[in-house]
């Protein structure tokens, strides 16, 4: 069904709904906050519909397998590159540096 956008789910079958409550993790809260701030004026790097379009453009496998905020952070990455706010190379370099940090350090956010 290539005519169906990956995000367009109405009427598909599915299993039971997991209605348990879930406290968002710090990573999730930060992603949420970054998304909101980057859309907020006066910066307004993009609008909600661009964000939706970007999420819909994820590879179907990535959309299916990623959690909600994982899709959001992938969209933030893609949009920051698309809007020339950040470059792909600098993101990859920073990511490599972050991953190489000793345990514990990545959690520090007093900057």
């Amino acid at each position: 069904m290539t005519d169906r956008a990956i995000s367009d789910l109405g009427g598909l079958t599915g299993g039971p709904i997991d209605i348990s409550e879930h406290q968002p993790t710090l990573s999730e809260r930060r992603i949420d906050a970054m998304m909101m701030l980057l859309r907020k004026k006066p910066q307004a790097f993009w609008v909600t519909d661009e964000n939706r379009r970007t999420i819909e453009s994820l590879e179907p496998k990535a959309y299916e397998e990623s959690a909600y905020y994982e899709r959001w952070v992938l969209a933030i990455r893609a949009l920051l590159i698309e809007k020339s706010v950040l470059g792909e190379a600098e993101i990859e370099a920073k990511l490599a540096e972050v991953r190489a940090r000793p345990a514990g350090y990545t959690r520090e956010d007093q900057r």
Partner: peptide, 30 residues
């Protein structure tokens, strides 16, 4: 994706596009 969050956040802070304070305030506002 958790590492990606850290990398993007730190880059945005380094470039003065967002501040750590602003992110914290936004989290608290929500």
């Amino acid at each position: 994706w958790e590492f990606l969050e850290i990398a993007l956040r730190e880059l945005l802070i380094e470039k003065d596009i967002l501040s750590s304070r602003e992110i914290q305030d936004e989290i608290e506002a929500w």
